[in-house]
């Protein structure tokens, strides 16, 4: 059994009552969703004038991401294909309006009315053909085309996606560009397998300085804030296996253990309580050749 929900069943069937229930009961899922939507809202870069906007949440599900929008005071319209998920959203009494719809059929919204759109882990579903009438390319085109139309000029759309592979990422991005969006992919924590997250940051209109994709988190050594940052974040520099290097460089590397390294090691031994010679000016000095 695969772990990707996209490969198991169409979304309106996969997100049944049982699956939807997880989105109210599992605090882990709730926390991740909240974090993702906070980051998406941050990337949306709405003008900081305190005016509340009308936002769109594509694949709103049980309204977890919408709650983040509500907390920030925005009004939102949520779209989802799963009735069970929307029922959970009703139970949670979310503030936004919910619409049962399929993003692959195009968004049925008027032109230029939405101030921004977010989507958490939804758009990759478009790459699947779950019915005989589904053609991923047509569905992607319909989705991005209608999204472009419904957004106001200069508005942004931030879509967090889990593309299955490189080809899928390129497919999604190319259809976004074809619809007229400018922007690109922002990758948070690219060195981590677990907390790596991809966001498509799209701006309505021609490319400009303001539409340049912002930098991802954790790109240069900045570690994740929580516990799963432990192992894989530490070795930022890629270690190339020694035997693929020319001989000269290998030797250079061995020299790296200088005085500092020796002193550190001696300090370690001392702390362990073993007998260690005192540090002098001769410590870690090379012997003369004639020795």
């Amino acid at each position: 059994m695969t772990s990707r929900p996209e490969l198991q069943a169409p979304p309106e069937i996969f997100y049944n009552d049982d699956e939807a229930r997880k989105y109210t009961s599992s605090s882990r899922i709730i926390e991740i969703q909240a974090k993702l939507s906070e980051r998406a809202l941050e990337l949306l870069a709405l003008p900081n004038d305190g005016v509340h906007r009308l936002l769109l949440d594509i694949g709103c599900g049980s309204g977890l991401s919408g709650e983040t929008l509500t907390e920030n005071g925005h009004q939102w319209i949520g779209l989802d294909i799963s009735q069970s998920m929307l029922d959970v959203a009703l139970e949670r009494e979310v503030e936004g309006d919910l619409v049962l719809g399929d993003m692959g059929q195009g968004l049925d919204l008027r032109t230029g009315v939405i101030d921004g759109a977010i989507s958490i882990s939804a758009v990759q579903w478009l790459c699947n053909a779950d019915k005989s009438s589904h053609e991923p390319r047509i569905r992607l085109k319909a989705f991005f085309g209608s999204l472009y139309r419904s957004l106001a000029r200069g508005a942004r759309a931030v879509l967090q996606v889990y593309p299955e592979n490189l080809a899928q990422r390129e497919l999604i991005l190319s259809f976004a560009m074809r619809a007229g969006f400018s922007g690109g992919v922002v990758v948070d924590f690219p060195h981590s397998t677990k907390s790596r997250k991809e966001y498509l940051v799209l701006t309505c209109g021609p490319p400009s300085l303001s539409s340049a994709a912002p930098r991802g988190k954790g790109e240069d050594g900045e570690s994740c804030s929580d516990e799963d940052s432990s192992g894989d974040e530490d070795n930022q520099s890629v270690c190339v296996s020694d035997r693929h290097r020319p001989r000269k460089k290998q030797k250079l590397n061995k020299k790296m253990k200088g005085r500092e390294w020796v002193l550190r090691k001696k300090e370690q031994r001392r702390r362990k309580g073993t007998a260690v010679p005192a540090d002098t000016k001769y410590t870690a000095r090379k012997r003369k050749a004639r020795f």
Partner: peptide, 21 residues
């Protein structure tokens, strides 16, 4: 559904030119 959303929604059926309001 609020009238805010109603004011944004239009009919998306193939062939419909003016699906609003």
């Amino acid at each position: 559904m609020r009238l805010l959303t109603h004011n944004m929604l239009s009919s998306n059926i193939k062939g419909v030119t003016n699906g609003f309001p």
